[in-house]
C-alpha cells in the first residue's frame, strides 16, 4: 500500500537548535500515532509535512510530492493545531465558511459543509452564535476538528486534539477519527493521553530528542503489542500470601507489597507462563482478588523505560 508520507534521513535544525535529526519513516494509510515528550520534534515534523518549513537535509514527500510551499499537497491536507489561538470576533460558521472558501469551496458549499462539520463534531446550532474565542477548551477542540473536515482531506494531522476534552468528548473525537480512517482518510495524531492513542492507532512513530530510536519503535511494533505485560498489580485480601504462592511456583522475578492498600506489584519471570493459566493459578492461591491491573501500557514503557515494567 502506498505510504502517504515518506521521509529518508530527514533533518531539520533551527540554527544550533535540533528539531529533527536524520529520521526515516513511512506513514501508511490509517491512523498513526506520534508519541514523544515535549520538545521531541513532533511539531517540527508536522510543520515539515504541512510545507510550512523546509528540511535542512534529507528527503520528505507527502502524496508523492515535496510539501514545501506546495498548494497541490496542501489541498489534500488538514491540520488541527495544539494552540488554542483563534481569530478574534468570529463565530464558528463564519470562520469555517471562510476557511472552506480558501480551500476552494464556493460560498454555498462552504456554508453547507461548515454546518455538516459542526454537526459531525457534535457542536450544536445552539452554540453557533457564540464567538469561537469565547468557547470552552473542549468546544474549541471540536471546532478545530470541524475545520479539518471541510474540504475532505486525505491526510488529517492533529496535534493534541484530546486536550481539554472530557472522556465523552474524547470518545466522540475517537469515533470521528475511526470513521475517517474507514472512509480512507489517513490520520496522524499526537497526544499525551497514551491510552487513547493505543486504542486508536494502528501504527506509531516514537520521537525522542528529534530522533526516532529504532529500539523504541520496535517496542511499539504490532508483534510487541501482543506480548503479555511484564508486570501486574493485584489489589487483594492478602498480598503477602499471594506473593508467597507465586514465588513458590517460580513465576516472580520480584515484587513490591503495599500493605496499607493491600496491593501486590508483581514483576514476572516469564509472563506468558503466568497468563497461560492465570485463572487456575489465582483460584489455587486461595486469595480473594479485588482488582487486577497491567502496570504500564506499552507506549508508556516505550517512552519511559523507568516506569514499572
Amino acid at each position: 500500500m502506498n505510504a502517504v508520507a515518506q521521509a529518508e534521513n530527514l533533518s531539520r535544525f533551527y540554527g544550533m537548535i535540533l528539531g529533527l535529526n536524520n529520521v526515516s519513516f513511512a506513514i501508511r494509510p490509517g491512523i498513526t500515532g506520534i508519541v514523544g515528550p515535549n520538545g521531541a520534534g513532533k511539531t517540527t515534523l508536522f510543520r515539515l509535512l504541512l510545507g510550512q518549513i523546509q528540511p535542512s537535509s534529507g528527503e520528505l514527500t507527502v502524496f508523492g510530492e515535496r510539501p514545501w510551499n506546495n498548494p497541490a499537497v496542501q489541498s489534500r491536507l488538514a491540520y488541527c493545531p495544539e494552540s488554542e489561538a483563534m481569530p478574534a470576533g468570529l463565530r464558528p460558521l463564519e470562520w469555517l465558511t471562510g476557511l472552506g472558501m480558501i480551500s476552494g469551496l464556493s460560498a454555498v458549499d462552504a456554508g453547507t459543509r461548515a454546518r455538516a462539520a459542526l454537526a459531525r463534531v457534535k457542536l450544536g446550532p445552539e452554540h453557533w452564535r457564540k464567538r469561537v474565542t469565547a468557547y470552552s477548551k473542549g468546544m474549541k477542540q471540536r471546532v478545530k476538528l470541524a475545520q479539518c473536515l471541510l474540504h475532505e482531506p486525505q491526510l488529517v494531522i492533529l496535534d493534541e486534539p484530546m486536550n481539554g476534552l472530557d472522556p465523552m468528548g474524547r470518545e466522540d473525537i475517537a469515533v470521528i477519527l475511526q470513521q475517517l480512517a474507514v472512509e480512507g482518510v489517513s490520520v496522524l495524531i499526537s497526544s499525551h493521553i497514551l491510552h487513547d492513542l493505543e486504542a486508536l492507532c494502528a501504527d506509531f512513530i516514537l520521537l525522542r530528542w528529534g530522533r526516532i530510536p529504532r529500539s523504541l519503535n520496535e517496542s511499539t511494533s504490532a508483534e510487541a503489542r501482543t506480548r503479555w505485560p511484564e508486570a501486574t498489580t493485584f489489589r487483594c485480601e492478602s498480598p503477602e500470601k499471594l506473593a508467597r504462592f507465586l514465588f513458590a511456583r517460580d513465576l516472580l522475578r520480584g515484587c513490591d507489597i503495599v500493605p496499607d492498600t493491600g496491593t501486590l506489584h508483581a514483576r514476572w519471570r516469564e509472563p506468558e507462563k503466568f497468563f497461560a493459566s492465570y485463572h487456575q493459578l489465582l483460584l489455587e492461591s486461595g486469595v480473594r482478588i479485588f482488582e487486577v491491573q497491567g502496570t504500564a501500557t506499552f507506549l508508556e514503557k516505550a517512552i519511559d523505560p523507568t516506569v514499572h515494567a
Partner: peptide
Amino acid sequence: ATFSPPRVVPNLAHAWGG
C-alpha cells in the same frame, strides 16, 4: 506511487472570497 486527486480543487476566486 499514485494518489487520487484532491477532493476539493483549489480555486483562487473562492479563496479571495474566503
